Simulated scan of single mutants.
Amino acid sequence: MEAIYLLIPIALVFLVVAIGIFFWAVKNGQYDDLNTEARRILFDNDKPAVKNKADISDKTANSENKTQ
């Protein structure tokens, strides 16, 4: 029973902190645009990374040989 006297105030402090963080996030615009990030993963415009210049030259040489 004595533990509940300690746990209830700790739970209330956590609740107040969580509500404070939520209102801080809303005030700073964290929830203003929910659709952009969801669409960004679908329409990825990044080019694939190339390991080194030798890979590029090998690929262009292979494509030139195929056309001839």
Rank of each mutant, 00 (worst) to 15 (best):
I8M: 06
N28V: 07
I8W: 07
A49S: 12
L34P: 02
L42K: 11
A38F: 08
W24Q: 12
I19M: 01
A38W: 02
D58M: 10
R40M: 07
R40I: 04
I56T: 11
L42F: 09
K51S: 05
S63Y: 10
D44T: 07
V17W: 05
N65S: 13
L15R: 08
A54E: 15
I4L: 13
T67L: 13
D33G: 01
T67G: 06
A49P: 02
G20I: 00
D55L: 03
T36K: 15
T36W: 00
F14I: 04
N52H: 02
K53M: 07
L6I: 14
Y31F: 15
E64Q: 04
Q30S: 06
D46H: 13
R40C: 00
L42M: 05
L12W: 03
T60I: 11
T67I: 13
G29V: 04
V17E: 04
E64K: 13
S63I: 12
Q68H: 09
K27V: 02
L12C: 11
L42S: 03
I4K: 10
Y5L: 15
I19P: 00
F43E: 12
P9L: 04
T60V: 13
R40Q: 13
L34C: 00
V17S: 04
L15G: 08
A18P: 00
I4A: 13
W24F: 07
F14G: 00
M1S: 15
E64W: 03
A3W: 07
E37C: 01
D58A: 13
I8R: 14
T67H: 02
G20C: 02
A38P: 01
A61F: 12
F43V: 09
G29N: 07
L7H: 06
V50D: 05
F22V: 08
V17H: 03
E2I: 13
E64C: 02
P9N: 07
I56A: 09
A3T: 08
N65E: 13
L15S: 09
E2H: 10
F23V: 11
G20W: 02
D58S: 13
K47V: 09
E2N: 14
A3Q: 11
D55P: 02
F23S: 07
K66C: 03
G29I: 01
D55S: 08
D55N: 08
N45C: 03
I21G: 09
V26D: 10
W24K: 10
A3H: 05
I8N: 01
N52M: 05
V13L: 14
